[in-house]
């Protein structure tokens, strides 16, 4: 295998002119005007489809944004009665719940990433490199937590954690989040390691590098983009996680999603909207990162 990745983009671009030529083939020979009308209709349909999609995507977001600046809004009014930033001030007040929940959420997410990586880097390497007899079975084990209804699992986890004194503590919540995040991180890490050509490691061993040194100077740097992407997934999943936190963390540990839940249950849609918007920021930022980090050759190996 060579080290450069064939770019898929030019191939896709090259396919488009060929596709455009299709209606012009002699066999069909439609009249010029029908081609044009077909073209217009296609464009309109595409535009409509895009508009519906955009509305489904951005409609709820617009509603959130509106609620976050609505100081008073009640029926029968279609739009808020008074606008203002009063609730933003409440949320960002240093003594406010939101700020401390944000800090809790972010620290839990960071710890979760550390725990998940500590497991997924060695596990991913082993799954990618070693000829484990139960390789497929092991991969499925990491998927299992996703297969069962999460509420049923978390109730039992909460019971077990209670006897261990882990309920209502940050380590307890981190463990729950990590178990959940490992699904992604182990699979992605295994794919990232599998994408590193074996000869690249052997070349290092061959001129005198120990297995450990080879791993840290060759394998890990080459798999780093994939590992990084898996870390980001885990971080986002943790930030967003509700059910597990609810069963294991309450009432001592309050993360942003829990605050959001409490606020919206209490009818305080402004606080809930603002919290939701805050939650959105890291997701969008990290998705932009992931797009840069995860290359096609890594993605194609996920689950293999």
């Amino acid at each position: 295998m060579t080290t450069d990745h064939p770019l898929t983009a030019p191939r896709v671009a090259g396919a488009i002119p060929a596709f455009r030529k299709l209606p012009q083939t002699r066999a069909r020979a439609p009249s010029a005007s029908s081609v044009r009308w077909g073209g217009y209709l296609g464009t309109i349909l595409k535009g409509l489809g895009l508009a519906v999609f955009a509305f489904m995507l951005f409609g709820p977001l617009a509603n959130l944004a509106l609620w976050s600046v609505a100081e008073r809004w009640y029926t029968p009014f279609k739009l808020p009665v008074t606008y203002g930033l009063r609730y933003w001030e409440v949320v960002f007040r240093p003594t406010g719940d939101a700020m401390s929940s944000l800090a809790t959420s972010v620290s839990i997410a960071c710890l979760t990433v550390v725990v998940a990586l500590a497991v997924s880097v060695p596990a991913g390497y082993a799954l990618a490199r070693l000829k484990l007899p139960l390789r497929t079975l092991l991969m499925i084990v990491f998927l299992l937590p996703q297969a069962f209804p999460s509420v049923a699992i978390y109730i039992n986890v909460a019971r077990v954690f209670y006897t261990l004194g882990l309920t209502g503590t940050i380590p307890g919540v981190v463990l729950v989040h990590a178990a959940h995040g490992l699904v992604y991180s182990v699979w992605i890490a295994a794919a990232a390691f599998a994408a590193v050509d074996r000869d690249l490691e052997l070349a290092a061993r061959n001129i005198g590098a120990s297995p450990l040194r080879t791993f840290f100077t060759i394998t890990l740097p080459l798999a780093a983009p994939g590992i990084m992407a898996s870390a980001i997934f885990v971080f986002l999943e943790s930030l967003d996680e509700f059910t597990g936190t609810f069963f294991v963390g309450v009432p001592q540990v309050t993360t942003l999603p829990l605050l959001l839940y409490n606020a919206s249950m209490g009818g305080n849609y402004q606080i809930a909207s603002i919290t939701a918007l805050i939650l959105l920021v890291p997701s969008v930022l990290f998705m932009l990162f992931i797009e840069r980090f995860l290359k096609a050759d890594v993605l194609s190996k996920v689950g293999q």
Partner: peptide, 20 residues
């Protein structure tokens, strides 16, 4: 003996250069 203790060097068909 593991490869790193044998004191040889190898050239690979795939070059096996480290792209990073």
């Amino acid at each position: 003996m593991p490869p790193e203790k044998r004191g040889m060097a190898m050239m690979f068909q795939s070059y096996a250069l480290w792209p990073h």
